[in-house]
Design a protein around this nucleic acid. Sequence first.
DNA 1: TCCATTAGCGAACTTAGTGTTCGGTATATA
DNA 2: TATATACCGAACACTAAGTTCGCTAATGGA
Lengths: 183, 183
Amino acid sequence: MDRRQRKTREAIFGAFVELLSEKNFGQITVGEIIERADVGRATFYAHFETKDYLLKELCEELFCHIFDSASNQNTAHRHIFDCNAPDSVFLHLFQHLKNNDNNISRLLSCPNNELFLQYFKSNLLQLIKNQSPLFDSEKSSRLPESFWINHIASTFVETVRWWIDNGMKESPETVTGYFFSVV
Amino acid sequence: MDRRQRKTREAIFGAFVELLSEKNFGQITVGEIIERADVGRATFYAHFETKDYLLKELCEELFCHIFDSASNQNTAHRHIFDCNAPDSVFLHLFQHLKNNDNNISRLLSCPNNELFLQYFKSNLLQLIKNQSPLFDSEKSSRLPESFWINHIASTFVETVRWWIDNGMKESPETVTGYFFSVV
DNA sequence: TCCATTAGCGAACTTAGTGTTCGGTATATA
DNA sequence: TATATACCGAACACTAAGTTCGCTAATGGA
């Protein structure tokens, strides 16, 4: 990748993340992004089709390593529902949010975050789907699989939302415990 | 209320609901609404501050009777968690959605529905909050009340979303059963 | 029935944001 | 060094939101 391209891309991501620490995704305009990033309007659109794609690509950069490493755990036969596992994906995600690198939590907490939530949730759905054969409980056997999977992913996302909205006072370990008590 | 005002208001609601049966809330413009309703632009803004307020007022008209009657049930000491009660609020809500008067389900299913979901969820939160003293289980005693309440409301909303997205094949009774199995 | 009030009309207008185009300049890579 | 291309910047078309105002007509009370 051309060094100029890389620099521009990083400048845009940087400006975007900075703006996310100040306001909601929906309130941020392309004009603001390019002003902070100090790039031309045409340049922005050369890199990202729309503002929504920018968000999507940012998400991927921030979270793909977690989801990827989680997928790899599959092969090790240690699954994501093991709440005591120190490398539980869910715990890992809560910790990552707590660190709040790049103001990730802003993305989830405020209204108008559907796009990000969708990205997050669809990744979770995929992950859980792959794991579901490993998981059978009295509950899951009584319910349609798609309902059950959707329920777990939704509950995770809503737990995160609750946690952030309440100031993230609890430790990642505690909130992971809450999560596992209700699913 | 002036007859002219009433007519205009109804024309706007009608056009809005009609448009909701064709596309998402976010895709509908004020221009389209006033064209269908056959009212002037200024008239629209005389009635509704913004498109968001229009949605809010529509929601209130569609659902306030359910939430109001649910609140009244409190005094009768029969509470919303009684899944066998034929007048369970949750069952009532599922039935109302199934009837789909005024294309309500469109409001919940598609993306870009945060506003409506928020309205819906905040009403549920209020309702559950009032009921929560009546409800104590092994689960709820272990968890912070706000987490627990939020979990129930979220799960309901997400169950509705799942149901609609999957074509509402199940009966309201069945889906109420699913809901009660996971909370 | 009359009349003051007020809802609605419609058309023009401001503001704001999105996304595109294009010729010129600077920088990277081979 | 030469060619390709990323970037600039400024203008442009377009869409939608929300406002303004003078005029008309319906309404509801006396």
